[in-house]
């Protein structure tokens, strides 16, 4: 994999955290070929900050979040980790636009051992067809759950695999990552604790905001790591837009 460094546009982008930077305007004429390459190939990115650049991603449905993600959205495939201090911090609301687009594509969403009962009327309200939703029950053993996750990631008909697993060894993560790559599927792992050395290409954290006057509806979403971002960026997002 080639990392192409372009030093011409490194300075300005870090200044604004939440705005998509207008860095493209800074490019020299000579780098247009490089731009083209970067546009076409998701495996190729600038070694510097890619937040809010390119169009390879799938829109998250939240403009503030798109702005801090490389490729302006969720990756098409791969493994994603969402870290919350406890379940129910808005992590599903964050993914609802993604789920909707997956269902519209005619693909399935597999929920592997969610901690609570999945409530169908809420899915219908969110515009997600319940016929394309399949749940693997909570009391499934960890081994079986991981097995199903790997199989589901390998299957092209599953557009999104959501799994609740707290701690997974690097080897397993790597395996899931490979499975996701073969099936062109996005896998999401929900966890309580962030591990710094996780190989997943993208890690998000939904913040635990104690201050009560800091925006009643807003949650802080931090992109701890994303392939193409050099440092963690965060945005305040109103996750309950529909509510």
């Amino acid at each position: 994999m080639t990392i192409i460094r372009n030093h011409s546009d490194t300075h300005f982008q870090y200044q604004s955290q939440y705005q998509p930077s207008q860095g493209n305007a800074m490019h020299d004429g000579g780098s247009s070929d490089i731009d083209e390459l970067l546009q076409d190939n998701p495996a190729l990115w600038r070694g510097c900050d890619m937040a809010g650049q390119g169009t390879t991603g799938r829109s998250t449905g939240f403009t503030q979040l798109d702005a801090i993600l490389p490729g302006r959205g969720w990756p098409e495939k791969g493994l994603m980790e969402v870290v919350t201090p406890h379940w129910g911090m808005g992590e599903l609301q964050l993914l609802i636009p993604l789920m909707r687009s997956v269902v519209e594509q005619g693909k399935w969403i597999l929920w592997i051992s969610p901690p609570y009962l999945l409530y169908a009327p809420a899915l219908v309200q969110a515009g997600i067809n319940t016929e394309q939703v399949l749940v693997v029950k909570l009391d499934t053993s960890c081994k079986d759950a991981l097995w199903s996750m790997e199989k589901a990631l390998q299957t092209e008909n599953c557009g999104l695999v959501l799994a609740w697993q707290n701690w997974l060894p690097t080897k397993v993560l790597r395996r899931l990552q490979l499975a996701a790559d073969t099936g062109d599927t996005l896998g999401v792992l929900f966890k309580h604790h962030d591990s710094e050395h996780s190989p997943s290409p993208i890690r998000l954290k939904i913040g635990d905001s104690y201050s009560e006057n800091a925006g009643f509806n807003e949650s802080e979403v931090t992109v701890i790591k994303a392939r193409g971002n050099f440092r963690s960026l965060s945005a305040n997002i109103n996750l309950y837009q529909q509510a």
């Binding site: 409530y119 693997v136 029950k137």
Partner: peptide
């Protein structure tokens, strides 16, 4: 054809996990 491969995938899941571990949700 895609649908078939999906059904096959689910059968495999069912074979491994057993029937009552896979659930569909429906609103009533």
């Amino acid at each position: 054809r895609n649908d078939n491969s999906l059904v096959q995938f689910m059968e495999q899941l069912q074979a491994r996990l057993g029937n009552n571990h896979i659930k569909f949700v429906r609103s009533v």
